[in-house]
């Protein structure tokens, strides 16, 4: 499982403040804490409150690169902000994300190619959030077809079925899980899959339990990657155990220690 740490996001108070005050130490600590806990890559999002996202994004990237060479996942709904991050990134990058809308695909796929970045494609469009599995597959197929047309390697594409809060859209959970398995057979070689995990428990109590239960189920459906809180120790332990049960790792009595240390 390719773990993308979600904590560098201006939406969180400490990060928002650190961005505003240009507190480099706080951001770097946040980066390193996640990597120690097992993150393979870091999501970077300057948050909705950022007045000058272009400047903030490149500052964040520079500051994080001082302490790690792990891949960075540039998270913004605005292609201009993503490009600003790509320009200064020396680490490997992942664009987070394009939707299935033509204007986004036309802007972001060429960027991904130009900067040799991986790309997350999220199965929504201007028409809104899909209501079932078929709509998700249709949007996924649009994204994959666009990548193929534009000669972007589908192996570098991560499809995100868009996870909804369980207390809002309980009826969609099974569709979301099944989408993960079906996305992967859209083409050969197939795209990879990822998702923003914490959304599933948004607004609910027992968030950590809901997160790790959903993640376990998603892993069983073949999920390749997730954007999550790597500092949630029980979540990471559950993930390691789920992968063990799926025979992705070889059992030994100390398997948790072995895989926690990465």
């Amino acid at each position: 499982m390719f773990i993308i740490g979600e904590l560098i996001n201006g939406m969180y108070a400490n990060v928002g403040l650190a961005i505003k005050e240009r507190n480099k130490k706080e951001i770097q600590k946040c980066a390193l804490d996640q990597l120690i806990c097992g993150a393979d890559a870091l999501d970077v999002n300057c948050g909705p409150a950022s007045r000058q996202p272009l400047v903030d994004m490149s500052w964040l990237i520079e500051v994080i690169q001082e302490v790690t060479d792990k891949p960075l996942c540039l998270d913004s709904s605005k292609p201009a902000v993503i490009e600003e991050g790509l320009k200064v990134a020396r680490n490997k990058t992942i664009i987070n994300s394009t939707t299935a809308d033509a204007e986004k695909l036309d802007a972001l796929i060429p960027l991904a190619k130009k900067y040799k970045s991986r790309l997350i494609g999220i199965t929504i469009s201007a028409k809104g959030i899909p209501q079932n599995k078929d709509q998700r597959l249709e949007l996924a197929a649009t994204i994959v077809a666009n990548c193929q047309e534009k000669k972007f390697s589908v192996e570098d594409l991560y499809l995100d079925p868009i996870v909804l809060p369980v207390n809002v859209a309980q009826g969609q959970m099974k569709d979301i899980l099944e989408s993960i398995a079906e996305f992967k057979i859209i083409s050969d070689p197939g795209p990879k899959t990822t998702l923003g995990l914490s959304n599933v428990s948004q607004g609910a109590h027992l968030r950590s339990l809901i997160n790790r239960t959903f993640l376990t189920m998603a892993v069983a459906y073949g999920l390749d990657s997730a954007i999550l809180d790597p500092k949630d120790k029980e979540l990471i332990d559950t993930l390691i155990t789920a992968e063990l049960i799926l025979n992705k790792n070889i059992y030994c009595d100390s398997y948790l220690e072995a895989y926690r240390r990465k």
Binding site: I250, C252, D253
Partner: peptide, 14 residues
């Protein structure tokens, strides 16, 4: 026993 081989390697490296 592959499980013990792995466990022993971890114990030794610990």
């Amino acid at each position: 026993d592959i499980n013990i081989a792995k466990q022993l390697n971890i114990l030794i490296s610990d």
